[in-house]
């Protein structure tokens, strides 16, 4: 009985270690040449306009994607590396564009976000590739993906005073710090003090 439990624990531990190793490998693979000599992530387009009939773009998944802690770590990095200064708490935007809605200028897929952070972008996004290891950038990608609110299915967005649209705002970050901010909302405040504590 006891021995069985011990074995189970050992297996679980080993399984976890293996999974971690696999994730690390996948992360490295994104920038490693395949046998054909192509770097998959270099084939990820910034534009989705595709002249002629080129092969479909490669599917690059976030190697940290299935780690529930990745977004949490990403949030810590987002704050510590001053991403928060430009993109604001919960990605509201300011000096840099908002990340809280998914209309990302340079693409919202994990590979697009990875490249935007790694390479920087010409309108003022710094290139972090030389400073941050890939695993950290992937954690940031996980966080950015988790704070963007999913589209509501409409083609466009209405902004009006009466009736109030948008109807909802997010709870301010000085009260709640979470990688899942859209779980905390309240009615749109029109510049008045928020009620939530």
């Amino acid at each position: 009985m006891k021995r069985g439990l011990l074995l189970l624990l050992v297996l679980l531990g080993a399984g976890g270690a293996l999974a971690q190793q696999a994730r690390r490998n996948a992360a490295e693979n994104a920038l490693t040449p395949t046998r054909a000599g192509a770097y998959p992530i270099l084939s990820v387009p910034v534009s989705h306009l595709r002249p002629g009939q080129p092969p479909p773009p490669p599917q690059v998944t976030n190697p940290a994607g299935d780690d529930p802690q990745a977004a949490q770590r990403g949030m810590r990095y987002f704050i510590s590396f001053n991403c928060v200064g430009c993109h604001a708490p919960n990605g509201g935007g300011g000096m840099g564009p908002s990340l809280s809605d998914v209309k990302s200028i340079y693409g919202a897929e994990p590979a697009n976000l990875f490249l935007s952070i790694y390479q920087g972008r010409p309108n003022g996004m710094p290139a972090w590739g030389g400073s941050l290891p890939e695993s950290v950038i992937w954690d940031l990608v996980a966080y950015v993906r988790s704070i963007g609110q999913k589209p509501d299915g409409n083609f466009g967005q209405t902004i009006s005073r009466t009736p109030a649209s948008p109807q909802k705002q997010q709870t301010p970050a000085e009260f709640v710090q979470t990688a899942n901010p859209w779980a905390f909302t309240e009615p749109f405040g029109n510049g008045k003090k928020p009620d939530a504590k």
Binding site: R76, Y77, S80, F81, G130
Partner: peptide, 19 residues
């Protein structure tokens, strides 16, 4: 400075990270 300074601090240098 390049690889560690974003997180670590050394007084007197420009590495002023606080993580």
């Amino acid at each position: 400075g390049m690889r560690c300074g974003i997180c670590h601090r050394v007084r007197g240098g420009l590495a002023q990270g606080r993580l």
